[in-house]
Amino acid sequence: MLTGKQKRYLRSQAHHLSPIFQVGKGGVNDNMIKQIGEALEVRELIKVSILQNCEEDRGEVAEALAEGAEAELVQVIGNTIVLYKESSENKQIVLP
């Protein structure tokens, strides 16, 4: 579980990132969760964009992705989700 200070730090680190995944009409599926988990292992911090044609609620999408990838939900702002997961082999981000 992240503290408020850690989330604030991660939001500042994620500000300049571009979304590398998009959730569309199909919603969240197992393959997407697997790929996001692998991306988190390499990058630790990623953004996911929710497209206009996504039929699910953005809060539900964020929770499903965080739970499936065993990651921390840092922020949901607009149609963008920020996820963090500490890497076991490729640790780059040091939390305050």
Rank of each mutant, 00 (worst) to 15 (best):
L2A: 02
L2M: 00
G4N: 09
K5N: 08
K5C: 07
Q6I: 01
L10Y: 01
L10F: 01
L10Q: 02
S12V: 08
H15T: 05
H15F: 10
L17R: 08
S18C: 14
S18Q: 12
P19N: 01
I20C: 12
I20K: 14
Q22M: 13
Q22S: 14
V23F: 07
V23K: 09
G24Q: 00
G24A: 01
G24Y: 01
K25D: 09
K25C: 12
V28M: 11
V28R: 13
N31V: 13
I33C: 11
I36W: 05
I36F: 05
E38F: 11
A39C: 14
A39S: 15
V42C: 10
R43N: 15
I46L: 09
K47H: 04
K47E: 04
K47T: 03
V48T: 05
L51D: 14
Q52Y: 11
N53Y: 07
N53I: 06
C54P: 03
C54L: 01
E55V: 10
E55W: 08
R58D: 09
A66G: 12
A66H: 07
E67G: 15
G68N: 02
G68E: 05
G68L: 05
G68A: 04
A69Y: 04
E70F: 11
E70W: 10
E72R: 07
Q75Y: 07
Q75P: 07
V76L: 15
G78K: 10
G78F: 03
T80E: 15
I81P: 07
I81H: 06
L83F: 03
L83Q: 02
Y84E: 04
K85G: 09
E86V: 07
E86I: 06
S88P: 13
E89C: 09
N90M: 14
N90A: 14
N90Q: 11
K91S: 13
Q92S: 11
Q92Y: 05
P96C: 00
